[in-house]
């Protein structure tokens, strides 16, 4: 079982928005969808390192602010025809609290 750490409340992240967690592995972006699901990806786009946390969230996807590649929040995969994968982190949501694991 990966170890989960409490990082904040669901309400701290706007719907269709994202916040950043600073870790010694680098920044991790936590996303909140319009259905209040949460996902976590490394905050560095596999294309040229753009901060995914600054992108526009839509459905279960985020668009990188740098060159508009679109990524699936669930898998980290770029939406075709682009090919790339952003590192994913396990997250859990329990009674409004967000828990993150640093084991990719």
């Amino acid at each position: 079982m990966p170890k989960f750490i409490e990082v904040g409340l669901l309400e701290d992240i706007p719907q269709l928005g994202s916040r950043v967690i600073e870790t010694d592995q680098g920044r991790i972006a936590i996303f909140r969808t319009s259905d209040d699901e949460v996902f976590a990806l490394a905050d560095a786009c596999p294309h040229k390192g753009g901060p995914l946390s600054q992108g526009i969230v839509h459905g279960k996807r985020v668009t990188c602010p740098m060159h508009n590649w679109v990524f699936e929040l669930q898998s980290g995969e770029a939406v075709a025809p682009d090919e790339a994968c952003a590192a994913r982190y396990p997250v859990q949501l329990e009674s409004g609290k967000i828990y993150l694991s640093l084991e990719k």
Partner: peptide, 30 residues
Amino acid sequence: NKDGCHVCRPAVNYYLLSSWPAECTDDYQS
């Protein structure tokens, strides 16, 4: 799609703001 995408949301947000400057609230996530 219920949330639209990065192309339509900013556009629609603008059309709302420019049509109803008094009534509409800016949607920053868009």
